[in-house]
Each structure stands twice: as structure tokens, then as C-alpha cells.
């Protein structure tokens, strides 16, 4: 009995050594089969644990978000928008005051008059992929050909997003597009029925912009710079001199004069519009300008409806004549 047990023990030890040696010596293609078998054996248990973890996470998660949170978030958004409106009003008043200080107040009473050109915001829908592909396939063209709709009526070759307003509605190249008070981009090509737009994050976009600083006297706008798209959901503000005080988190608005556009295309809104917020600001040693990266307030993918800014003759003046 004693000898038999010792013999079987030695046999098992030799077997273990043989198996280990074989595993070491055999090509990895064969040994990996054995390891894969062990991994496969563990898979059902691991799947079960994974399912339990998923179930736990779904149970732990509340079914619906707290309505109070939603309400507070809505209130916060509304308050932010109201603040921005008030800041812009204060900016306009401050600029008017500055101008009056420079020119002086006239001694005689002046009568206010209506402007000849007034801003007019035209609502436009962004065309989705399905609508564009329908246009490309000609399914819509075939239906409209009898009414005089041809392929040249659309801007289908452009890679930029399309809006459903074109030359027929008085749209021209370079017109600015807004979503609320935020700048979205500007018109690139104009077809009869549709137009393409350059988003502010596109590398083709250039526009005038300035930074708003919070001071003791309120919000003050800085020097005009040039805002260019970087192509990855970010913009860069160029030509801001080192004398400007720049901080991350400051807001960026449209510039006083857009040097990229002819005077006839300048904004007639009479108030700065919002580009976004500074997320990076760096003044490299010896550099002539700041390096400023801006995160746009609104991405083009977030909106379905935009407003195109155009100029029209004041209807009151027309009626008065």
C-alpha cells in the first residue's frame, strides 16, 4: 500500500512536469488552443457576472430624471439668455454714451427718423441628409421640372450644409446666419431654391470678432480681431495684440466691421452677436499676437432652424412715400 501510493505520487509529479514541459516546448499555436479552451470555459460565468452588473446599473439608475432638475436647468438657461441680452443692451448704451461724449450733445432738439435700411431676419430650415440625397437622385427634380425647377436651382455640389432658402428669397453670398443670438456661419453659394453655408468652425470661415471684458464699468468690447475656423469644432481668434487682457472664459462677439465683407454686406443688426467662449489663451514669448481658441456657442449639428440676416428697405419709409 505504502509503495503503491508513493509510486502513484511520483507518477503524478512526473506527469505534471511532462505536461508543463510540453506546454513550454510545443508551438504556441497548439498551446494557445488549450488556453482558449480554458478561456471559453470561463466565458459563461463572466457573461453572467456582466449581466448582473448591467442589471444592477439599470436598477440603481432612476427611471426618469428629476423634474425639479429639469426645471432648474431651464430656468438657468433662460436667466443666462436674459443676462446676455442685458449685457448687450448695456454695451449699446455704453457705446452711445461714448459717442455722445466725443461729439457732444446738440443744443437743439432733434427729431428721430426711420432708417432706410433695416435688418430682416429670414427663417430657414437646414436640409437633412435625406432631403439632400433625394435632391441628388433627382426624385424631387422630376416632380418639379414641369414647374420649371432644374438641377441648377439647387446647390448640390457643395460639401457644406444646405438651407432651404435661395436667391428667390433675396439671399446673397456672405449673408450672416444666426441661431438665436449666436452666429452659426455665413452663406457660401446661392442657388435659386437652396443655399450652402460655411459654419464658423469651417477652415473657410473668416469673420470679424472682438472679446468682451468685464470691468467695473460693465462689459467692454476689445479690439477687433479675425475669427477663423479650425475645422474640429473650434475657432481661433487672430490678430489680438498683447496689450489686450485676455482670460479663459471671456465671451467673443462679432466685430464692429467685418473686413472680409463689402460694406453693403455689413451687419445691419446694430448690435454684436455672440460667437462663443474662450477656452484657451496663450501669449507665446515674443509673439506679436495672442493665440486664442474659441468654443462656439452653438454647433451646426445642434440646430435645425437658422435665421438669415438680410437688409430690406424700411417698409415704413415705403409707405410714407
Amino acid at each position: 500500500m505504502k509503495r503503491e501510493t508513493r509510486f502513484s505520487e511520483i507518477k503524478l509529479v512526473l506527469l505534471a512536469l511532462l505536461v508543463a514541459g510540453s506546454l513550454y516546448a510545443m508551438p504556441s499555436a497548439y498551446s494557445s488552443r488549450l488556453y482558449n479552451l480554458i478561456r471559453d470555459a470561463a466565458r459563461p460565468g463572466l457573461t453572467l457576472v456582466q449581466q448582473i452588473k448591467v442589471w444592477e446599473s439599470t436598477v440603481a439608475k432612476p427611471d426618469a430624471p428629476d423634474p425639479r432638475v429639469e426645471q432648474l436647468e431651464r430656468q438657468l438657461t433662460e436667466t443666462k439668455q436674459a443676462n446676455r441680452r442685458l449685457e448687450l443692451q448695456s454695451l449699446q448704451t455704453a457705446e452711445e454714451l461714448h459717442r455722445l461724449k466725443q461729439t457732444g450733445v446738440p443744443n437743439y432738439q432733434t427729431e428721430s427718423s426711420d432708417r432706410l435700411l433695416v435688418p430682416d431676419l429670414l427663417e430657414a430650415q437646414l436640409l437633412g441628409e435625406s432631403a439632400i440625397s433625394l435632391l441628388r437622385e433627382g426624385q424631387l427634380l422630376n416632380q418639379g421640372r414641369e414647374q420649371g425647377v432644374f438641377e441648377s436651382s439647387f446647390v448640390l455640389e457643395s460639401d457644406f450644409p444646405l438651407i432651404d432658402q435661395g436667391a428667390a428669397q433675396g439671399i446673397k453670398t456672405g449673408f450672416a446666419l444666426y441661431a438665436g443670438q449666436a452666429v452659426i456661419g455665413k452663406i457660401d453659394e446661392v442657388g435659386s431654391w437652396t443655399s450652402s453655408l460655411i459654419p464658423i468652425t469651417s477652415v473657410k470661415y473668416r469673420g470679424s470678432a472682438r472679446i468682451a471684458r468685464r470691468t467695473e464699468q460693465g462689459l467692454q468690447l476689445g479690439t477687433d480681431g479675425i475669427l477663423v475656423g479650425l475645422g474640429e469644432g473650434r475657432c481661433e481668434l487672430l490678430q489680438i495684440p498683447p496689450t489686450e487682457s485676455i482670460q479663459v472664459g471671456q465671451d467673443v462677439y462679432t466685430g464692429e466691421v467685418d473686413r472680409e465683407l463689402p460694406l453693403s454686406m455689413q451687419s445691419t443688426l446694430g448690435q454684436p452677436m455672440y460667437y462663443g467662449r474662450i477656452i484657451e489663451a496663450e501669449l507665446p514669448r515674443g509673439a506679436p499676437y495672442w493665440k486664442i481658441i474659441i468654443e462656439p456657442a452653438v454647433q451646426i449639428s445642434d440646430v435645425k432652424q437658422v435665421s438669415v440676416l438680410r437688409q430690406i428697405i424700411n417698409p415704413r419709409r415705403v409707405l410714407a412715400n
Binding site: L12, A20, L23, I38
Partner: peptide
């Protein structure tokens, strides 16, 4: 002595999930 076989199997399991040199865990 069956425990030696259990050790062999456990060693193989260890080297499977530790991506070790084949045979080291078993031995």
C-alpha cells in the same frame, strides 16, 4: 495525491489569464 493534478490544472488557469510563458504556472 490527486491534489497534484488540481495544482497542475490551477497553474494552467493562472498562466492562461496572466498571459505567462506556457508551462511556467503549471510546473
Amino acid at each position: 495525491s490527486r491534489v497534484i493534478l488540481c495544482g497542475l490544472l490551477a497553474g494552467m488557469v493562472c498562466e492562461t489569464f496572466d498571459s505567462a510563458i506556457p508551462g511556467t504556472g503549471a510546473m
